[in-house]
Amino acid sequence: MYTCSNALLMAKEPDFMIKGIFSYELFGHKVWITNTHVSILIVMLLILVFSIVVHGKIKKMDPYKAPPMLVNIAEFIMDFISNMTVGVMGSKAGKFVNYIGTIAIFILISNVSGLLGLRPPTADYGVTFPLGVLTFCLILFNKFKYQKPIGVLKGLCEPWPFWLPINLIGDVAVPISLSLRLFANILSGTVMMALYYALLPFFVKIGIPSVLHVYFDLFSGAIQTYVFCMLTMTYISDAIGEG
């Protein structure tokens, strides 16, 4: 009796962990290819195919006619990203539009890829931490480039010199909090959807999950993309300073 009702209520065990697909030896270490790699490859393929198709369309485009739909979409994305960057960083935007655009498109497609039935690649700390470290390197580089080492040292000793360790910890916390924020938000959405699909009886799985997908995948994913790019831009323009 118990097993019967249990089988009706619980379809299967919740399943959202990172799973290894196959392993190989590299320099004496066992290295796994996981489903994160697979979904990251699919995301990359999607972006690559879109870019190649749009490139071909733009090459063949007649400037005196209305542009085709795909070119319109690409122009909209480009406009949005460059407006956002210029709006936050002002005259310093320049070449950072490329970096912000790359990161925004990658994170957005990764976050939304839960809709395709993939495990979102950003729900793996091994993906978000490099993104945070990349931003951190950019911040450090621009700090040393625009403020010069003397200015960086002066900034570290801000109100008084004995605040140096606290300022150092605050600097090191930037990539960790950036990457943990993205990771935890997307992971919580993934876990919530997995629990919903696994633990509830079948009749609530008709129709209702679409609303949850809109919130957890589309809304939360877009907001987190926006926040990551926004914080990256704010940190970088802080690092550049007035110069």
């Binding site: 943990l180 924020r181 938000n185 987190q224 926040v227």
Partner: peptide, 15 residues
């Protein structure tokens, strides 16, 4: 949105 995302971080650490 920016401020809320920063405020959310501590809750996410608990999660």
């Amino acid at each position: 949105l920016l401020g809320q995302a920063v405020a959310e971080t501590t809750g996410l650490y608990g999660l």
